[in-house]
Design a protein around this nucleic acid. Structure first.
Lengths: 190, 190
DNA sequence: ATAGTATTTCAGTAACTACTGAAAGGTGAA
DNA sequence: TTCACCTTTCAGTAGTTACTGAAATACTAT
């Protein structure tokens, strides 16, 4: 029992599964710290690593999760656009497969996160700047000073976000070719 | 009451605070979806946006949180290295201030996340590849095929992570100058 | 030392998120 | 239309994370 736990038998039948499980678990852990829940990340990892279409029951069985959870997580992944539904001729049940190109997946995720998270911050910064501009009259010197400091900080953050947005823009839509070009340019420049 | 809630009086005394609170809330929301808890993100936003050193009680009062929470969150931010402790001459209590340079903060965070999240995945991928290499003998054709597919997926992910790591490497350690150079190069190249 | 003040720790709890399982809802073949 | 099968939904619950408040600890001035 202890032996098999520490040094799993080199059973060719199960090696592939062992390897896949290793990958799935790591991917799930990473997902968590990026704000994606573990199960969703694991389902995606499973579909990606096996490279074969899998149905809901396959997912349930492999990851030991309920039907409801599998259904909802699969839908969410489809909504993100990083997995796809797949109908097999003459089969009733639906299958799912991951996108093949990691670069494309990254582009999709990056675009969505930019839209959901960076754009609102930029908008808020602009709103803040506008508010300060409209009310900068008749105050004590100390207050004026504090306002000035906040202005500077807003400007610093704005610059950062504008530039970061531009970089994202390059990645998004260009996918693989865009990214590899970026990398080539970078590696040459430094 | 309703009037003051929907259209706050243009009181110069409070405009600065209103603006800051707006920024703080947005930053907190963003943090959450990046795996940083709301309070920590808000404390950081507060220190960044005011640009003035603040003590624990300032933080507690402004964000309406307990002493314990403030203490632990401030420590965590210090551990990350994006805020700093500050002793004022002749004062007992400690003050905290945010780093000024957004680019530097980003570099610090990127380096840490690469170390904690990307490096382990790369390591796992290599381990998986090694395991598959060592056991690829004597199997059915179907199994061989499945192994081959998984190999390809591992390779695809590895390529992506290696390249991404290189990009991160450029950002990290170069901070502002590095990043702005990167951006200049990129914007010219596209 | 000691008092007075600032900080940290942590057990308990509140708040939140993820998950299950069963029931309801669809869908295509006969 | 009905049957058989598959999918989706969702109320209830388990599990997790964040927070409080008070006690313990640390520090500094006298």
């Amino acid at each position: 029992m202890i032996a098999s736990a520490t040094t799993p038998v080199a059973d060719p039948q199960s090696t592939l599964k062992t390897v896949q499980d290793l990958f799935i678990r790591r991917w799930g852990e990473m997902g968590q710290t990026w704000g994606i829940n573990r199960t969703m990340a694991e389902i995606h990892a499973f579909l990606y690593i096996t490279a074969l279409p899998q149905c809901t029951d396959d997912v349930m069985e492999r990851l030991n999760i309920s039907r409801g959870n599998a259904s909802m997580s699969l839908r969410a992944l489809c909504d993100w656009g990083i997995i796809r539904r797949l109908h097999k001729r003459g089969e009733r049940r639906e299958y799912f497969e991951s996108l093949t190109d990691v670069w494309e997946m990254f582009s999709i995720i990056a675009a969505e996160r930019k839209r959901r998270e960076m754009d609102p911050v930029l908008e808020t910064i602009k709103q803040c700047q506008k508010m300060l501009d409209e009310t900068s009259i008749g105050k004590t010197a100390a207050k004026q000073e504090a306002v000035q400091l906040t202005r500077q900080r807003l400007a610093g953050m704005e610059e950062f976000m504008v530039v970061t947005n531009k970089i994202f823009q390059q990645f998004i839509g260009n996918a693989r070719s865009g990214l590899t070009r970026v990398v080539k340019v970078l590696l040459k420049a430094f």
